[in-house]
Simulated scan of single mutants.
Amino acid sequence: MGRGLKITIGAVVSVCVLVLALAGGWYWVTHSVEQPAYTVVEAEGDIELRDYPAMVVAEAATAGDRQEGVRQGFRALAGYIFAKDREGERIAMTAPVIQQAAEGDRPWRIRFVMPSQYALDELPPPSGGGVALDRWPPRRLAAIRFSGRADDADFAEHEGRLRDWMAGRGLEPDGPALLAYYDDPWTPGFLRRNEVLLRIR
């Protein structure tokens, strides 16, 4: 029985070490990647009203369902920032990766926010992969944050909650929801940060 207890304690210690290592790696990654700055205007639980400054984004319009669209768009955008499809220096990766439903035969737009050090005219022009650059003006967004390996049902549920919260305050959304992923595929679900964002009219 003593030997079994030692094995059990050893297993618990090993699991704790693994969890701490994963949490430490997650903290390092999330704190070493630039994220857009914003000011919180109002907060209630997991919902915030935020003011964002102007920012530059690289985007790719893709076909297929959301998962396939994300894969296509991520590949195209990674080719741009890592200088695989163009000349010049690499551009640092940022978070989040933003998804937006569109219309027509290319129903998804996938976006990377460019590092804040770049103005639109300072970025190298895309040379392939269907990538385009755009400057977003300052905007106010409502955001709801949640963890887990988010799927379509998760995003739909949280978008519904966010729209209800806005309606209760007389806030009207302007355009489709933005879906934001902040973490890489290897981050455990309970450590992940996902958001639904809606622009305020």
Rank of each mutant, 00 (worst) to 15 (best):
A83S: 14
D105I: 03
R106P: 00
G104I: 14
T39P: 02
D152E: 15
M114D: 05
T94C: 06
R111Q: 15
F146P: 00
A156Y: 04
P96M: 05
S116V: 10
P126Q: 14
V97Y: 04
Q99T: 14
D105Q: 09
F146W: 01
R135L: 11
V41R: 13
I91Y: 04
E44A: 02
S116W: 05
R140E: 02
A37N: 13
W108M: 09
I91S: 03
Q35V: 13
M55E: 13
G73Y: 08
G129T: 12
P96H: 07
S127R: 13
F112W: 06
L141V: 12
Q67K: 14
R50A: 07
E89S: 11
I110V: 15
V56D: 00
L133K: 10
Q100R: 13
R50I: 10
L120H: 05
G79K: 05
F82R: 10
S32M: 11
M93R: 06
S32F: 11
Q35A: 15
V131Y: 07
I98Y: 02
M55Y: 10
A143S: 00
V70R: 11
P124S: 13
G79L: 08
M93S: 11
A153F: 01
E59P: 02
E87N: 12
I98T: 13
A142R: 00
D51Y: 02
S116H: 12
G148N: 00
P125C: 02
D65V: 01
P137D: 08
E87D: 15
T62H: 03
P124A: 09
R111E: 15
L120T: 04
L123E: 11
A76I: 08
Y38R: 01
P53R: 03
M93V: 14
M55D: 07
A153N: 03
P124D: 09
A153D: 06
A150Q: 03
G69I: 13
A132L: 07
G73Q: 04
T39E: 15
P36W: 03
V41M: 14
T62W: 05
V70G: 05
R86V: 04
R66T: 09
P137G: 03
L133E: 08
V97D: 03
E87M: 09
Y52T: 10
V33F: 07
I47A: 07
G104H: 09
G64D: 08
R50S: 04
E34A: 01
W136S: 12
L141M: 14
S32I: 08
M55V: 05
P107V: 04
L49T: 04
E89A: 15
P125K: 15
I110F: 06
A76R: 05
Y52I: 12
R75C: 05
A150P: 03
Q100Y: 01
A37T: 12
V40H: 06
A119D: 15
